[in-house]
Amino acid sequence: MPPKGRIIVSDLYCKGCELCVGACPQAVIALNPDRITAKGYHPASLFKDGCTGCGICAIVCPDAAITVYREDLRARRAIPAGA
């Protein structure tokens, strides 16, 4: 099972350029038409499950607007087999 991840996109920095949308290997990022930033952009956000927390969106983001979290795999390994 791939690791689970999530991203938080800052409304302060995001300009809706869609570079993260094009770069996401899982294709789970899209601009959110229901949100609007103070500058008038629709910010990017996760629109479905499947984020693995790979961080590629954050690498290509020109505004460093994305914080990427990933499930701690050490915690998963700590669960004994068969539990």
Binding site: G5, S10, Y13, G53, C54, G55, A58, I59, A64, A65, I66, T67, V68, Y69, R70, E71, D72, A75
Partner: peptide
């Protein structure tokens, strides 16, 4: 149970 992969520098 999460680790931060990337945060704004």
């Amino acid at each position: 149970e999460e680790v931060i992969v990337y945060a704004r520098p």
